[in-house]
Amino acid sequence: MSLLSVRGLKVAYGGIEAVRGIDLDVEAGELVALIGANGAGKTTTLKALAGMLRPAAGTVRYADSDITGVASHRLIRQGVALVPEGRGVFARLTVQENLQMGAYIRDDRPAIAQDLDKVFGLFPRLHERRAQVAGTLSGGEQQMLAIGRAMMSRPKLLLLDEPSMGLAPLMVQKIFEVVHSIAAQGVTILLVEQNALLALEAASRGYVMESGAITLSDSAPALLASPQVRQAYLGE
């Protein structure tokens, strides 16, 4: 039984279907990549899974229960955390306050303090800047903060939306190193990326999305080797 299993998911904005009935599975402990071009419906899918958008049809099952249409503030209590596209840090709060906000649903203070240290261990840069206002961080640091903040809720399933967006290559590499080490801690990750090469190198399996539908799904090495993917997403 997979940790997350999606069947026939449809999401529509007004009358327009952005996601047209997709199936998707993520096993516990897996790092799965969802790749595709701009406007393919990746972010919409992720938002629906995180409870930010209500699906028009289909079912979403998570940890053996039906979570279709369950709101995000409930899902996060069950261990589903979203790192939104474009980071969305609390710009006027300090790094530390941002991270504490990530633990909003928890009240076990000693454990929160421990997790704060853990996140600072994961991102030493954030520790250096913990008293700094988040809005003054660089894009990469903000992405670190957004991921660290999501980790503060102790997620079982982390939904990562375009962590590489708008970042310098060196920073992208750093972010992916951290994504790796989070996965190594046993957190299941569904990663949405436009940067197909990076995403597939990090993931064990991948899905390719095009105009709201999943067109390919395979193990990551197989996708990397597939001529279709190489031509469309790796520029060969």
């Binding site: 930010m52 995000s72 996060i76 609390f90 906000m101 909003y104 999501a150």
Partner: peptide
């Protein structure tokens, strides 16, 4: 109070933190 601050700063992020906005 913390939830209000979160909403004031960024409503989507507040939602992602588990706040019933």
């Amino acid at each position: 109070g913390r939830a209000w601050v979160a909403i004031r700063e960024d409503e989507i992020a507040a939602q992602a933190m588990g706040i019933n906005t």
